[in-house]
Write a protein that binds this DNA or RNA. Structure first.
Lengths: 229, 229
DNA sequence: CCAAAAGTGTTTCACGTACACCCATGC
DNA sequence: GCATGGGTGTACGTGAAACACTTTTGG
């Protein structure tokens, strides 16, 4: 490893897969490109990494600039570096995925002029570059993460019903779960605290709302506790 | 996302954590730097990504140039991009980890002039840059991977005893396992085939040697089989 | 014959899974 | 009063964990 300045360099970008949850299920946020290549096509929000910012910071900045969503959870996913993934020239991209509380946002949130839109997983349009591959990888990672870490709560409002929680797991894991077993398991971890609030605006018995006790989770983790659904 | 050539770019490198297993346990391969910064200190093998090679290709090339080891398994780990991780200038590195069959190599393998040396996990010297952090991340990832995928066989010779396999798991996972339960579980997966060879050169009853049936594993995976130790 | 590791079964307990009914509420 | 989902307990089976002794071989 000699002097770095002697080598021609790939361009370096970050791209983000933003997941949100609403009544229709799990959604991804895409933006419409306004410049070539792939002008007019949908793509993941992202952009170039600046010299004075870390990769995480670049991801957060791009998300804030392009979508204005408030990020609950952000994790680096994988770095994609196929030689021809950008037709212009060599571009390596560090992909991230993010979770947001979709319920608290306007359905389409975009701070700058670009169109941003939520698409249900499984009904995404054709996307630019190798972004399809990134989307797939992100979803796979989310599935694994959700089972092993309590990140699901970052997709839900601060207070939620057990039904909401169960539906989240069902949608992301792609299979049905038994109501009684699910409640037994989740409540058995002793990480949810009952609030005295209840669901409102439903045409049936209102469900009790719970909140996730982050502090308690962190304490348990130090004692070797392992979250798993 | 406008024209990439308008932005100043970070330098981009790959660094590899190479794991091998011998009688002393799990080892990591480090090389001694011969140029500043950190000249004389130990570091992970790695180097700059060229414009005409993918990230994986760059990792393989660097490993071959700097260490000459034959790679059994290679996986991208994480991309490290703190602003000041290289004192010279902004350098982002894509870290990989690799598994090699150490028994079949000379204890120190280096094809070019640089010193390369194996160090036991837990007795590594001070390393340059943020390589300590990368090492830690690699070990953590290896632990998880080993439990969920049959990558352990990439650290063992093609024919191995159950004891060797068990010791591998004990060393990497950092805890003792019950011999009978271990054998029951492993043999129960029906992925090891008995060979008619036995251990040699031991001062006690010689153990039977097994080999891992990759084909069968792949077939089972398609049917939803899930490896777990 | 002694040291050292190979090889082998059973019992116990925890946890996952399957499964059905009454209750509260809004309309 | 009816439709809709909220909320609850039990029985069964599978799989993990604990546990000790006999066999083989080399020196």
């Amino acid at each position: 490893m000699t002097n770095p300045s002697l080598y021609p360099r790939p361009a370096l970008t970050v791209d983000c897969v933003v997941f949100g949850l609403d009544q229709q299920g799990l959604q991804v946020l895409l933006i419409q490109r306004d410049v070539p290549p792939f002008a007019g096509e949908w793509a993941l929000p992202g952009g170039f990494v600046r010299l004075d910012e870390s990769l995480d910071a670049a991801a957060r900045r791009e998300l804030s600039e392009e979508t204005g969503v408030r990020i609950e959870y952000l994790e680096q996913l994988y770095t994609f570096g196929a030689v021809d993934r950008d037709p212009r020239e060599r571009v390596v991209t560090v992909a991230y995925y993010a979770l947001v509380k979709l319920a608290s946002h306007a359905p389409v949130a975009a701070t700058d002029a670009r169109a941003a839109q939520w698409f249900p997983i499984g009904s995404t349009p054709k996307v630019a570059f190798d972004h399809e591959q990134i989307l797939t990888a992100a979803l796979e990672r989310l599935r694994g993460k959700l089972r092993r870490k309590p990140v699901g709560f970052d997709l839900l409002p601060p207070r939620f019903s057990l039904r909401q929680l169960q539906q989240l797991y069902e949608q992301v894991l792609g299979r049905e779960l038994d109501k009684r077993n699910f409640r037994k398991k989740i409540l058995g971890m002793d990480l949810l605290v009952e609030t005295d609030e209840r669901e409102s605006g439903v045409a049936h018995r209102a469900a009790r709302l719970y909140r996730f006790d982050v502090k308690k989770y962190q304490r348990l983790c130090l004692q070797g506790f392992h979250f798993e659904v």
